[in-house]
Design a protein around this nucleic acid. Sequence first.
DNA 1: ACATTAAGTGATT
DNA 2: AATCACTTAATGT
Length: 217
Amino acid sequence: MRNDKILREKFIKYYSPIFEEELIKQILEIGNFDKIKAGELLVDIGDDLTHIPLIFEGAVKVIRQAKEGGELALYYLKPGDTCAISFINCIETKKSVFEALIESDLEAVFVPVDKIDEWLVKYKSWRRYIIDSYHFRLMGMLESIDDLAFKGLHERLIKYLVEKANRSNKKTIQITHQEIANDLNTSRVVITRIMKQLQDEGKIISTRNKIKVLRLD
DNA sequence: ACATTAAGTGATT
DNA sequence: AATCACTTAATGT
C-alpha cells in the first residue's frame, strides 16, 4: 500500500533462511506488511481471523479470558513465530477463543487464510514451519499449565520477570504490579508482597511502574 | 494545590 | 495465597 520497503527487507532477512525462494516471493507479493504499536489489541475474543501474522519484530501476548473476570497469559509470540492456532481457526472459519495483545511494537506480514492452505501443499518449508508452530504453541501452553499446577507464585513471578526482561533485552521492565497480577491471575497485593521479598533478597529493584531485574537468569 | 493512580501493610480467612 | 480496608508515595493537571 505504501512504503513497506524497510519492512520487506527485514522480512527477507529474517525468513529467507527458513523459506524457499519461491515462497518468499509469494509472501512478498501477497502479504500485508504492517507495524503495530505496543498496547494495541491485535485479536479480541470472537474476532474473525482472516490472516495470520509472520512476526519479525516485537512480541505478542496471547491471553486466555475467563467469563467472569479472570485472565491468564498463555504464551508469547516472538520474531520468527506465527500463531498456527489462528490458522486452524481460519480454516474452520471459527471465531478466536483467545485475546492477543501487542506487547512491544510489532512488525509482521499478514497472510490471508486461503493461501495458508494452498502453500501447505505447495511448499515443504511452509509445511515444516506451520507444523513446528503448532508444536511450539502446544509446548508453550503445556508449560503454562505446569507452572500453574506445580509452581508457587514466588517461582512463577521470577520466571515471568526474567522472560519479560529477555524478550525486550532490557534489565528494566515497565509494568505495574496490577498488570503482572492480571497476567498471572492473582491479586495485586500478593504480587506486591512477593516483589518486596525479591527486593530484600537483592534480586530486583522495584519502583513505580518499573522493575529492574538484577541477578536471576 | 489537588486529584488520581501505584504501591505498602496489618489483620483476617 | 486471597481479600479487605486503609495508608503512604509518586505523578499528572
